[in-house]
Design a binder for these strands. Structure first.
Lengths: 135, 135
DNA sequence: ATTAGAATGAGAACCATTCTTATTTCAATC
DNA sequence: GATTGAAATAAGAATGGTTCTCATTCTAAT
């Protein structure tokens, strides 16, 4: 298991966080996780997001609004995807990628790597707009 | 001028912020702006980033680290571009886009819009890696 | 069972950002 | 150039999401 590989324990609180994230279906804020997991302390949630992040289990999204959002890593949750974010309420949903888009991204990354300086290891794409309920 | 169109004045402080951003050459944090603009108060800088943002002059980047970063809007600074961010130090640089990439993005956006729900108005792409000095 | 080390929970502390308010500046008019 | 009312500034207080502290509880391997 990933946590054990990182020298950590798979505790009740961490189980609760991972299963809440899986049940959520979209990147969740700490507030959402606390609401979905009765008995989970805020300090424990924040601390474990760091631990789970270091173990490669969850990904932290630097949000558009003031709340950080977390989701299971692509390795655990399914396949590579991008995000659609609402500029009004901050909602973030997953959206699939397409081969054409990924090919174009790969090409851009190759160009930048060759231009020197940065060593690119991944990418993050957000499609920005307004969700159904905010329109 | 954009500020006047928004009912605001082009004051000394705002001039200082805009020219500091232009001189910086890459998205800057408030701390960097304060260091580059002697006499600029922090509260004034924060307040004016909001005003300049509402007027479409600056864009706020929800950073990878704990600091918000600001840059001149594409309309003022040049052409459409994306960002390269360092996972270690948080540095953000601009990088151009390519016609192929933009075409693939446009296609993806069309698919998502047709799938209903969101109305997409823009996109944000970050290529993630490590900068030269952090490698 | 025991035990040593790690995790938890409650609240305090932190710090980037926002708000408050008295003072100053702006720009338009006289 | 002086006046004036509205908007901007600056300094510090306040806010709030996140992180830290530490005494207690749990974990897992002996």
């Amino acid at each position: 298991m990933l946590l054990a590989a990182d020298g950590q324990k798979y505790t009740t609180a961490r189980r609760a966080i991972v299963s809440a994230l899986a049940a959520m279906g979209h990147p969740a804020t700490i507030a959402e996780l606390l609401a979905a997991s009765p008995g989970l302390a805020a300090s424990t949630a924040y601390r474990n997001m760091t631990v789970l992040g270091a173990a490669g289990i969850v990904i932290r999204l630097g949000g558009t609004d003031e709340f950080a959002r977390f989701e299971l890593s692509e390795e655990l949750s399914g396949q590579h995807h991008h995000h659609v974010v609402c500029t009004d309420c901050g909602l973030v949903l997953d959206t699939g990628s397409s081969p054409g888009l990924e090919a174009a991204l790969t090409e851009s990354i190759r160009d930048i790597t060759q231009a020197g300086g940065f060593e690119i290891t991944g990418h993050r794409l957000e499609l920005v707009g307004r969700c159904g309920s905010c329109q």
